[in-house]
Design a protein around this nucleic acid. Structure first.
Lengths: 209, 209
DNA sequence: TCGCAAGGGGTTGTATGCAATCCACAGACG
DNA sequence: CGTCTGTGGATTGCATACAACCCCTTGCGA
């Protein structure tokens, strides 16, 4: 429907890889509109951090330097930790049950290595949690981080144990929300993201020595 | 120079108050360009969270519901806490000296209640710290929060003691960075923001009772 | 007097044309 | 042979024209 959503999906689905050139005329033809809405969509996605545009030189899909990936997870741990905390503080039993449902379904699909469903349910879970947290600024601060092209298909690099940890974290977070325990919810969420970071980036060796 | 920067400054300087209508033709005339660059600037500022646009109904300056202000400060404490931590971990002595300079100058202007200079130096300080932290994603996550129109002229609502605390926090953060102590830098930054929140929103009474 | 529907003004959404800028390649000069 | 410069093609940036949409007003009817 909306050009900006279409373009965002194209990037997020890997149709345009990080670093790929985004020519205005090519996108306009692909999306079946003129250059004007394409340009506006590119400007929005630029502000979202999904694309980088150089003056007079066009747009490319943004790519994080590897060092920034650490920061992305550190930020997500802090921001989504807050989201989990607030969700646990305000969620009703029905809210928590819905979260639990999603987490359990996610676990089932993970058992069958159905990665597409896992990715979708994972996004659902995190989005629901943020919505429960109830703050628009929270959602916005996160969107730029979780939509990062580098984070796509992260589950592909998880081994069996990491996958098990990840899906169990979701269930545990739902339990913490159900219990109305903000501290519990926050630390599990932080563990969830640090665990994912370790699977993606490998072990963090100590500095000294 | 750039239309998006001009427009952002207009909003941030209070020329357009939160909730004010942003007509495309009016802005185009004000800025001396056509509607096209104005529209692109509005889309960018929309993604930054500074303006809200409704389909076919135009753009307005964004305004947070009061409840979200708590979340904004909670988020800033977490994100800028990370920025301070990373800055302390990597900053050189020269970097720390520059921060100290800014903090001391800020304190002098605050003593004379020169609010314009205070606001500018404060922004400089926080920006420098984030730049020291060295991560583009960090800078981007913050920009949407600190640019929030609601946070303008916050110092106007500070009493003498709160002002003193705020400026001293800057000096202390510089000291922590100079000492290369990430823990110290982070907690002072968190205190800095919680103190500001208290001045803006009043005391947070306990729930129970 | 109140409700509703049709019309008009104004604003946004989109398309297209033109100017400015950038990159690549070729040719000349040292 | 290497480097610099000029020219051509392509792409972006901007302006303008037209179409679509929304809201407000106005007139009619109950």
């Amino acid at each position: 429907m909306s050009v900006v959503d279409d373009l965002r999906n194209l990037i997020l689905n890997g149709r345009y890889a990080p670093g790929a050139r985004l020519g205005e005329v090519e996108l306009a033809e692909t999306l079946g509109v003129s250059r004007t809405p394409v340009r506006e969509a590119l400007r929005r996605l630029q502000a979202e951090g999904l694309v980088e545009v150089a003056a007079n030189r066009g747009a490319r899909v943004a790519q994080f330097p590897a060092g920034d990936l650490e920061t992305v997870f550190e930020l997500r741990a802090r921001i989504e930790g807050l989201a989990a905390r607030q969700a646990a503080a305000v969620a009703t039993a029905e809210d928590a049950d819905l979260l639990h449902e999603t987490a359990v379904t996610l676990r089932e699909h993970a058992g069958r290595r159905d990665l597409d469903a896992v990715y979708r349910l994972n996004a659902d879970f995190h989005r629901s949690l943020v919505r429960l947290g109830g703050s628009a600024v929270l959602a916005q601060s996160l969107s730029a981080l979780v939509h990062s092209p580098v984070l796509l298909r992260t589950y592909g690099s998880f081994d069996a144990e990491a996958m098990r940890r990840s899906v169990d974290h979701h269930v545990e977070i739902a339990a913490a929300v159900r219990a109305g325990d903000p501290d519990w919810a926050e630390v599990v969420m932080r563990a969830h993201l640090f665990s994912a970071r370790a699977s993606l980036l490998g072990p963090r060796r100590r500095d000294g020595g």
